[in-house]
């Protein structure tokens, strides 16, 4: 009887494993929305998170502190959330340098906080693209792991188009 139960459990575990591995991993955009829903809005905005450069221990400590301070993170979401934070806001990102010239105006904080978090300004300022082109570029960056607040993506595209639009 016990042997049969163990076999059933083993089969179920393997089946579950297969099902999990076959379900598509959430995209970066989906994880970004999940992170925003879990971590931002009530107590602070996304910029506080996006500026950090932490390793797994650092993000784990931060998540645990936030939970102690009232954030609601389910047991199911906790590890994927930490994975996303480590993947997106990690110690390998370059030091920011906010003191270089950046055109002022609506959206410039997005450029500073989110574009320059991963690279310097040259890949942007050396291009001239129309709105469709910049939308495509921003989507590509998000696909590759960049974070841009979901609600402000259009504002960033507008800023890029205004300052580095197609001639």
């Amino acid at each position: 009887m016990l042997k049969r139960k163990l076999i059933v459990c083993a089969v179920l575990a393997i089946a579950s494993r297969i099902a999990f591995s076959q379900s598509p991993a959430p995209s970066n955009a989906e994880m970004a929305r999940k992170m925003e829903a879990t971590c931002t809005g009530y107590c602070h905005g996304p910029a506080l998170i996006a500026q950090q450069r932490l390793d797994r221990n650092g993000w784990t400590r931060e998540i645990d502190k936030m939970v102690r301070w009232g954030a609601v993170v389910s047991a199911v979401d906790r590890d994927p959330l930490i994975d996303y934070l480590v993947r997106t806001f990690n110690v390998n990102r370059p030091l920011p340098n906010s003191f270089k010239a950046a055109p002022a105006g609506k959206g410039s904080d997005l450029f500073q906080t989110y574009c320059l978090a991963c690279h310097d300004e040259r890949p942007i300022t050396s291009r001239r693209l129309d709105k469709v082109g910049w939308t495509s570029q921003v989507d590509q960056m998000i696909k590759w792991g960049a974070y841009v607040p979901t609600a402000r993506k259009d504002e960033l595209v507008e800023y890029l188009t205004t300052h580095w639009g197609a001639r």
């Binding site: 500026q51 650092g58 920011p96 906010s98």
Partner: peptide, 10 residues
Amino acid sequence: PTVPGLQWEK
């Protein structure tokens, strides 16, 4: 190593 908190520059 990096530390958490507001990432002030200068």
